[in-house]
């Protein structure tokens, strides 16, 4: 028994050092001045990296755009995915396979190729270079995943609990908030996280459809990938990695606040 516990601890240590140490190194890199082989630690420190990021006049507005964009994309994703996933999970009808394929198609066809054509359409209907145009184009690489995840959740849940509640006289809304949603939370969490990460990292789609009017953090960050200043690059990477985390906390808080049942740890 004791040996097993020790093994457990060792494994935990090994795993966490795999994940924690690189992040620590990244942080160190962002505040390092001169840091050359074979020195284990930087020989001097500087705030140059962080300073030049926060000097960037467009940072605050880019953060704000990124936030609102990602939030809109998440909400729209859930709004569209729930009904679609439910139908796909529970009903069978003619042409179901067809619809399924169409819904998953954006994953198989390169989004960039689709975006080229969509850009023309969006230009004609006046959505190119607007916030909503970018929201729409971000649905492309995210919605298929959300539908898939939520659908798996529905299938796991089955439809019987819902029917039972309805037989007992519960309204649709009641059923959704008291039975379906609380039990689907793990799927919703997974979907939100995935959507956040995908949407945040869209560079090509955002530049193409956003046309420079919608400037997200990715637009500021990606060009620095070719910069020789490792401090700036490291600082930006940390900032970029913090975003999904803040989203995760925000959504978690919202869930705790809004749901009638405190779901014990899953």
């Amino acid at each position: 028994m004791k040996q097993e516990a020790a093994q457990h601890k060792l494994l935990l240590l090994a795993l966490s050092s795999c994940f924690v140490i690189p992040v620590l190194l990244l942080f160190l890199q962002s505040i390092a001045g001169e840091w050359r082989f074979p020195h284990l630690l930087p020989s001097s420190f500087s705030y140059y990296g962080w300073e030049s990021i926060f000097q960037d006049a467009s940072l605050v507005s880019a953060l704000w755009t990124t936030w609102s964009l990602t939030l809109t994309v998440i909400l729209l994703n859930l709004l569209l995915a729930f009904p679609a996933a439910k139908q796909l999970a529970f009903s069978s009808f003619r042409g179901k396979e067809m619809i399924e394929t169409v819904l998953f198609l954006p994953i198989f066809i390169p989004a960039l190729a689709l975006a080229m054509g969509l850009h023309l359409t969006l230009l004609r209907i006046g959505l190119a270079s607007t916030f909503w145009g970018v929201v729409l184009i971000h649905m492309l690489p995210t919605l298929p995943y959300t539908i898939r995840i939520v659908r798996a959740g529905f299938e796991r849940l089955g439809s019987q609990q819902e029917s039972q509640a309805q037989t007992l006289g519960a309204s649709q809304v009641h059923v959704f908030f008291h039975i379906t949603l609380p039990q689907l939370l793990p799927s919703v969490r997974a979907a939100i996280f995935l959507v956040t990460v995908i949407s945040l990292s869209q560079y090509a789609l955002t530049t193409m459809i956003g046309g420079g009017e919608v400037v997200t953090l990715a637009l500021l960050y990606f060009p620095f990938a070719e910069s020789a200043s490792t401090q700036v690059m490291a600082a930006f990477s940390i900032l970029f990695a913090l975003l999904p985390l803040t989203f995760l906390f925000l959504i978690e808080g919202l869930i705790r606040l809004c749901l009638p049942y405190r779901v014990s740890k899953i």
Partner: peptide
């Protein structure tokens, strides 16, 4: 100032011209 790759600007202009 908007940070955009020149290549992307040219490509977007091209599509805009088409539309």
């Amino acid at each position: 100032r908007v940070p955009l790759d020149t290549e992307e600007v040219v490509q977007r202009l091209y599509t805009e011209k088409q539309a």
